[in-house]
Amino acid sequence: MREYLKNTWLGIWTVLVGMKITFKHLFIPAVTIQYPDVKVPLPERVRNRLYVNMDDCIGCDQCARACPVNCITIETVKGLPTDDLGITSNGKKKALWVTKFDIDFAKCCYCQLCVFPCPTECIYMTDIYEFSEFKRNDLHYNFSTLSTDEGEEKKLNWEKFQAEKEAQKAAAAKQKAEKPAPEKKESTDKSKSAGE
């Protein structure tokens, strides 16, 4: 009987205690915000969409190798000795045309592993997080500053250059076999003109 009355009392009392707490919270300001109108300021280190500063990219492929989900695809073509590829912000001379630098954000897991190995700090995470798309393909970002045609052109240039170099080498070797010394100067001149 005592147990019975105690149960009744506890049942009513604990309910009242709970009601007191919830009632108190009616007058506490809300902690939520009206999202698209009000936004939380993001901290400095926030990890969201990647950005690649192509001016600094030297095409070293380290970020692509660090990526655990293989969402970065990089293709490079060697620049001709005559090409002016510019220099990176920390003073290194670039040697490769980056014909393709794609990041598939549908795959990206925002782990930031690609950011650390970059020697020129050209790939980094930004604070943009609203980039949803209706089609999965739209999440495929191309960062390369060269268009596909330009890329093809660079590739052709390089192949041509390579072929000529080979040819010259062969020719040089041939000439070397015949008469070694005087021809050397000529061949370097030739390669220069071929490059242009």
């Binding site: 919270h25 009616l26 809300a30 939520t32 915000i33």
Partner: peptide, 14 residues
């Protein structure tokens, strides 16, 4: 609204 404010939320606002 009652549930929202009891739970420190705003509830429908738009």
């Amino acid at each position: 609204k009652v549930s929202a404010h009891m739970q420190d939320r705003l509830g429908p606002m738009r």
